[in-house]
Design a binder for these strands. Sequence first.
DNA 1: ACGTTACTTTATAAAGC
DNA 2: GCTTTAAAAAGTAACGT
Lengths: 204, 186
Amino acid sequence: RLRKWQERIRTKDAGERNLQFALSETDRMASALGVPRSVREVASVIYRRALNEDLIRGRSIEGVATSCLYAACRQEGIPRSLEEVSEVSRVEQKEIGRTYRYISQELGLRMEPVDPKEYVPRFCSELGVSEEVEMKAKEIIDVTAEKGLLSGKSPTGFAAAAIYAASLLCNEKQTQREVASVAQVTEVTIRNRYQEQIEAMGIQ
Amino acid sequence: MTDPKETINIENVVASTGIGQELDLQSVAMDLEGADYDPEQFPGLVYRTQEPKSAALIFRSGKIVCTGAKSTDDVHESLRIVFDKLRDLNIQVNEDPEIVVQNIVTSADLGRNLNLNAIAIGLGLENIEYEPEQFPGLVYRLDEPEVVALLFGSGKLVITGGKKPEDAEHAVDKIVSRLEDLGLLE
DNA sequence: ACGTTACTTTATAAAGC
DNA sequence: GCTTTAAAAAGTAACGT
């Protein structure tokens, strides 16, 4: 009887410690990513739900915590790419993506695809371009996505190309290299998306 | 225009069988030309047939997996070659080992570009997986037939998980009518 | 700026770790 | 869970030239 009781306490303590670890890791990663406190709270709510639904068994605590943070950023409309999230996590990108898809499915998060426009403000401020470029980039995304160009394309690459195109149109040219660097995509991707976008916009 | 069903093409057939006899893979690897066997890496011996093109994974238990064939007939032809090769090594092989098709991978073309964002919402976010940051295809799981479809922006798709060629046809029919109902085709 | 190669996703069996 | 095998889809990346 006493043994059972001790075991229960030991398990409870271990569970508490694990939860504390997960939440402190979430906090550390969120700070490193520079996301507001509200996102950390959303992430911790998702993590507790995953814990209650027993979705962590067989997975690393940090992998689940990282995936919850990735999902929370998206839900709050300030997405971080898997690559960006993996840079502040000790879990590899592929595992984060896998775990995120599992958690999203099992919890029925009904995650919508990331809107490339949500990357524009952050990328533009990192580049230090004007609000005019930012607005133009968003317009390019709306128009070209409406014409079906977004299907299957990565949101960061699509946003990067639109920002590059907007910087040219607004006479505030950023090099493909600079934009590629902040969006963490290759110049080849920017070139390919850019060509499709300006063609669809009917520019030059 | 073109009936999507007519664009269906079988790309790969996976099947399993067995010769009803245990094997010493080490000696089979020595005697069978072109055999790849690295038990440290994988317990099966890999043997490739040229015509029809396929790869057979041969196990110590005598069970065999054949993959890479373009039709169920090719699977039978490939395995007939494998059986004869084993017989050449004086290994007893059952008369007509039962061959079970485990998976058929098919490609098809809906002939129109698809707005995957709209389709994701239309089919229901809880019924699909669409993560273009990770993969350009939208993953759609059907209950009947029990297959998985990958839909692409080009309108092309992949159907996998089926055990009969008809599974892919039924799947394409269901996908087409579902997308038409949603007004998301054309 | 090309071209090539290779990785991402799906399903599936096999034996063993 | 992983390992291996095959094949398609389309996007992205990392090589070399």
